[in-house]
Amino acid sequence: MSAEHWLFFFFAGVAVLGALNLILQRHPIHSALSLILVMASLAVLYLLLGAEFIAAIQIIVYAGAIMVLFVFVIMVLNAGEEERTSLSRVAKFVGLPLAAVFLVEVCYVLYRAWPSEQMVVPERFLGRTEAIGKALYGEFLLPFELTAILILIALVGAVVLAQKEP
């Protein structure tokens, strides 16, 4: 067992437990904290896959900006514990098992489709920030500019939606 092995299983476990906790917790703040945990452990997994820049962006934008917005809104609205409603019987006895079967099936197919001798060696591929910058401003220039416009529209939309009614 190498250090990478331990790192993968530890952070994969943390991510899955965090995701489970997101569903099980009844208070939105607790759910938000579990989601931040999932995002942080995913950032470590990105590092293991050699994507340094994406790992940093994941923390800065997702955990540091988007989730702060969520926590902020939860605080401002003073959202309390969520009221549970019981599932319909069909969903409970047919839906959930079927979903589990489907998930296992997907996992099995993925496991078979990718030869298990294809190992992840972090040193082999580095998502150098330089390469990402070159691709963004070369091959993907148009989508990049379009996302800039998208952000602007979202900005205006958020301000218009959330402002007090005149």
Binding site: I29, F53, A56, I59, A63, V68, M75
Partner: peptide, 25 residues
């Protein structure tokens, strides 16, 4: 000594807001 050292510092400081916000809430 990591290649994205500066981004790391920015990322960690951007998480610093949680301590304050959660304490307040």
């Amino acid at each position: 000594d990591i290649n994205v050292g500066l981004l790391f510092v920015l990322a960690v400081t951007s998480l610093g807001v949680y301590g304050v916000v959660l304490a307040g809430w």
